[in-house]
Design a protein around this nucleic acid. Structure first.
Length: 209
DNA sequence: AGCCAGGCCAAGC
DNA sequence: GCTTGGCATGGC
C-alpha cells in the first residue's frame, strides 16, 4: 500500500468516519454545500455556522430567497463569516449562474468560470454537493503532506497534488469525502501551524516528528 | 493581544 | 505562470 493511502487508513482508524459535508434537513444539499463552501473560504467553520444559522432563521437558505434577497441584507446575515462584502457578491453571483442549470452542465470548468469559485471551492461543491469524484485539496493537505515528506514544497500546485492523491487512493466517493474531512481533523488536532506531534496518529509515517 | 481560520481575485512581474 | 495585498469576523 502506498504512503498516501496508508495515511488515510490510519486516520480513519484513529478518528473514525466524519460524515461530511454537514447539512440541515429541508435544504437543498447542493445549495447548502455551495453556500457553506463560499462562506468557509479562509474562515473558521464555527464562524460559518453562525452565518448559516442566520440564513436558516430568515428562511434564506433557499434558491428562491437567495435569488431575491437584497444584497445588503445578505451581507448582514453572513457577517459572522467574515469577508462578508465579497462573499455576499459571490453567493448572489453563484445562485444566479447555477439555479437553472441542469446538473450535467455543472462541470468543474463551468464552476471555475464563476467569480468567487476557485479550485478548492469548486471541488468541494462537486464532491460533497454533487457526488462527483473530485478530491479536495486545501492548505491543510499541503501542510500535512509536506511535513510527511510526500511533497517537497507547500507551494506544490493544486492540480499536481490533486493528481498525486487521486492516483494513490481508490476511486471511491466515500474515500474521497472521508479523506479530506480527516485531513482537516488532523490539522485541527495535531498538524497545526505550530505542530502538536504528541499523540498524532500518523507520527510513525511522518518525517517531521 | 496577536495569531489563526476548510481562499479568491486583481494587479504586477 | 508565480507572488503580493486586500478582504473581516470570532475563538483561543
Amino acid at each position: 500500500m502506498n504512503k498516501i493511502y496508508r495515511i488515510y487508513r490510519e486516520l480513519l482508524d484513529s478518528f473514525g468516519y466524519q460524515n461530511w459535508w454537514p447539512v440541515h434537513r429541508d435544504t437543498d444539499r447542493f445549495l447548502e454545500v455551495s453556500v457553506g463552501a463560499i462562506l468557509t473560504q479562509n474562515t473558521n467553520w464555527s464562524n460559518v455556522e453562525k452565518a448559516i444559522e442566520n440564513l436558516l432563521k430568515e428562511n434564506a437558505l433557499s434558491w428562491e430567497t437567495l435569488l431575491n434577497i437584497d444584497i445588503q441584507e445578505l451581507k448582514q446575515l453572513i457577517k459572522p463569516a467574515g469577508f462578508y462584502n465579497q462573499k455576499a457578491v459571490y453567493i448572489k453571483n453563484f445562485v444566479k449562474n447555477t439555479y437553472k442549470k441542469p446538473k450535467r452542465a455543472l462541470t468543474r470548468e463551468f464552476l471555475l468560470s464563476i467569480k468567487g469559485i476557485g479550485e478548492e471551492t469548486a471541488d468541494s461543491i462537486l464532491l460533497y454537493g454533487l457526488d462527483r469524484l473530485h478530491f479536495v485539496v486545501d492548505a491543510y493537505t499541503r501542510r500535512i503532506f509536506h511535513r510527511a515528506g510526500i511533497i517537497d514544497s507547500e507551494k506544490t500546485s493544486y492540480r499536481k497534488l490533486q493528481n498525486l492523491i487521486e492516483e494513490s487512493i481508490p476511486r471511491d466517493l466515500t474515500v474521497y469525502k472521508e479523506y479530506h474531512a480527516l485531513i482537516v481533523e488532523l490539522a485541527k488536532r495535531h498538524c497545526r501551524k505550530k505542530p502538536v506531534c504528541d499523540g498524532c496518529p500518523i507520527r510513525n509515517l511522518c518525517n517531521a516528528a
